[in-house]
Simulated assay, not measured.
Amino acid sequence: MKDIAKRFPENPLLSPADIVPSQEGLQVACLLNPGVFQFDGKIWMIVRVAERPEQRGDAISFPILTETGVKIINIPIDDPELNAKDARVIKYKGIDYLTTLSHLRLVCSQDGRKFIEPEGYYPLIGQGLLESFGIEDCRVSYIDGVYYLTYTAVSPNGVGVGLRTTRDWKNFRSHGMIFPPHNKDCAIFEEKIKGMFFALHRPSSLEIGGNFIWIASSIDGIHWGNHQCILKTRENSWDSSRIGAGASPIKTEQGWLSIYHGTNRDNQYCLGAFLMDLQDPSKVIARTLVPIMMPIEEYELAGFFGNVVFTNGHVKSPDNDTLIVYYGASDEFVCGAEFSIKEIISLLQYS
């Protein structure tokens, strides 16, 4: 294993105590998995904020969105129809529920280390039935003056990819669900290739196939087709269970470089990288054999769901080699680390 991340000494950059809950009666349980972009001369993160009511010892309480607002559901802990083995998802009377309700919050920074919530910018919350369990893990792509926000939309109907667009981060247009369940981890390339939009995404199959990375193309960035599976899990490896794309791929002389996450059978989340052909990104030409980052620090090993490093946001420094990766640690904290793009590329194994 080779961890080449240079973690910020200020980590964690944000913890649940740093964010005010969205409403009375809820508390922030987790901050995680920020999308990252540059705007108005600053580095911004659109952070997933996961909330729930204060927990009592005799019951599990969790919120869901309804047409009239947030509704709190309470289930006795000894109810025989309750399955609460996972800290993130419970099953009750045959129905899956999230233990937290997530929305997206904007924070910004002059130095990339100290982030604040600016005035005049408001949270993004779920809208309608298909987002009634919340919206999560937003990736941001900037194309021709428009910011494309792809995020995980969760509801009783399943998990899909929603899309909103904006130019100023105050006015948004919703385009609904662009990839239906079960799908997530959608990252749109920040440059058109031969006049077409491209996006990585991750459909899932529990019986035939698996949790693999796919690519799709689009004329308008909203309606997608020509889906192709381009990267699969590997048996007896750090990415044997599931894989998913991080933020928008990075254009290099060697190809489109994508940072991705992978998990093993023990649900350890690590980061790796793969390289796609510049003219035809459906062709994967190289991939790392070992992780470039794995959970080793205490804040990555212990938290709401420990043993996790997960990224869906980064920015390049002016030197064009330093990649600043912002990531969720243990599904509870927001952290930062630096990588050398050249060093990542040197670890790729060409096929």
Rank of each mutant, 00 (worst) to 15 (best):
H261W: 07
W238I: 08
I125G: 08
G328N: 03
G255A: 07
E24I: 11
Y269T: 09
P181I: 01
G120S: 03
R202T: 11
C138V: 15
I213C: 10
G112C: 07
F310M: 12
Y121G: 10
L301D: 05
D144F: 02
L347D: 11
A245V: 06
H175W: 11
G158H: 07
S346W: 04
A59T: 08
A273Y: 01
H103K: 02
W238N: 04
W169I: 13
A87N: 12
T263G: 12
G221C: 04
I95N: 12
I178C: 10
A50S: 15
T68N: 14
H261T: 03
G25Y: 01
F115H: 05
F189D: 06
L32Y: 15
D266Y: 02
D40H: 11
I19H: 01
L278Y: 06
C229I: 08
G162N: 08
R164L: 11
P76D: 14
E253D: 15
P291D: 07
Q228G: 02
S155H: 08
I116K: 12
T288F: 02
I208L: 14
I64G: 08
W224P: 08
I219R: 13
K251N: 11
P249D: 11
E297F: 11
W44N: 10
F133G: 11
E190C: 10
T99H: 04
K342Q: 14
H227N: 12
Q228W: 00
R7Y: 04
S240V: 09
S340R: 02
L163Q: 04
N312Q: 09
R105W: 01
L149R: 05
P295G: 07
S109W: 00
D319L: 03
E81V: 02
G246P: 05
S15W: 00
S155W: 05
I222A: 09
N267M: 10
R265D: 14
T233W: 10
I341M: 13
L301G: 07
A245Y: 03
Q228F: 03
R202G: 11
N74E: 15
G162I: 03
G336S: 13
L289Y: 10
P12C: 03
W256Y: 12
P34V: 08
F339K: 04
C229K: 13
D319H: 06
F198Y: 15
V309W: 01
F274A: 12
G128Y: 01
Q23E: 15
L98K: 13
L323G: 10
C186K: 01
R164N: 05
M45V: 04
F310K: 07
G41A: 11
M45N: 08
I188R: 02
I72Q: 08
Y92I: 09
I72T: 12
L149K: 04
E119T: 06
A84G: 10
Q27N: 08
S141H: 01
Q38K: 14
P12T: 00
D280V: 07
D3L: 05
S141M: 04
N211R: 05
H103E: 04
A273H: 01
P21N: 06
D239P: 00
L347G: 12
G244W: 02
G57K: 13
G225A: 05
G128D: 06
G221K: 00
H261A: 03
Q254M: 12
G126Y: 09
I341Y: 01
S22Y: 10
